[in-house]
Computed example of a mutant assay.
Amino acid sequence: MDQGWTEGDTVGKCMVTYNRNRIKEAAAVLFHHTALDDETMPWKHYRDEDQLFTFMTMESPSNIIHGESRNLRKFDDSFINITMTHRRDSDVFTPYVTPDDVTSMYSRGKDYVDDLISKKKKVALWVVSNCKKIRGSRLRMDYVTKMVEAGLPVDRFGHCFKNKKEFSRFSEKQLQSYKFYMSF
């Protein structure tokens, strides 16, 4: 994974491992939605009837089904027991930020915020690589284009703008120079 937990991290009372040889010890097995492409039904690997098989993603349902052309219907109704996503109606709610992150951000005070904003010289950044696959991606592209045409300075990067490599070389200081990040 390029983000998320590392081997041996603890989350609550759980320890994270990517070692598939330890599946018999697991109370829960997380399947990132992309990992399900490699699996077939019926499931040919070990599974204890008390284990929770968990569907995990931070992507929108529309992008998974339409944009990435995932066929999750090959799994029967009892393969996945619970969901773990950014949606509040998931069995396991996994927000993009933790309560501790929010507390530390807001406890710094007005002086910290004023200092932070004084260093931001650029207005908005948008990084996108899903341009025209689904209706939502086309709508957000049109929306940002109209904002730019109206005069809002938005620096746009990613596959859609053929400058993904240029963005990958951005330093932390460059990223922090933006007041806003466009997210849809």
Rank of each mutant, 00 (worst) to 15 (best):
S107M: 10
K164N: 15
A150I: 01
V97M: 11
I65Y: 06
K13E: 15
V148Q: 08
D114V: 02
A26T: 02
T145G: 09
Y143A: 14
T94Q: 10
M141C: 09
V92Y: 00
I134Y: 02
Y96H: 08
I23R: 10
K173W: 01
P95S: 03
T98L: 05
H33G: 06
E68G: 14
L30A: 09
F161I: 07
V144D: 02
V123N: 11
K110N: 11
D76Y: 05
R140S: 07
C160K: 02
R108P: 00
N81A: 08
K110Q: 14
R20S: 15
R156C: 03
F161Q: 07
A150N: 05
M15D: 11
K119D: 00
L139Y: 12
Q51S: 07
V29T: 05
D76V: 05
K122M: 05
F79G: 04
K13I: 12
R87L: 13
N130Y: 05
S104I: 09
Y178I: 01
I82Q: 06
Q3D: 14
H66P: 02
P42T: 06
Q51P: 00
T34P: 00
V154Q: 01
L72R: 04
H86F: 14
M105R: 10
I82S: 04
S62C: 12
E166F: 01
E68L: 13
G158V: 02
M41C: 13
G4R: 03
E39M: 09
K162T: 07
S183C: 12
T54C: 10
F75K: 00
H159Q: 13
L36S: 01
D142C: 06
D101Q: 07
F55K: 03
I134W: 03
R73I: 12
Q176E: 11
Y181P: 03
T85P: 01
F184N: 10
K133L: 14
E68M: 15
E172Q: 15
K173A: 14
T34V: 11
D115A: 12
M141I: 13
S129N: 09
L52S: 08
Q51D: 07
K44Y: 01
H66R: 14
E49Y: 09
N81H: 04
R70Y: 06
A150S: 11
K120N: 00
V123E: 13
E25G: 04
R88D: 01
H45W: 11
T57M: 04
Y181T: 12
Y18R: 14
M84D: 03
R108M: 08
Q3F: 15
D37T: 09
M41F: 06
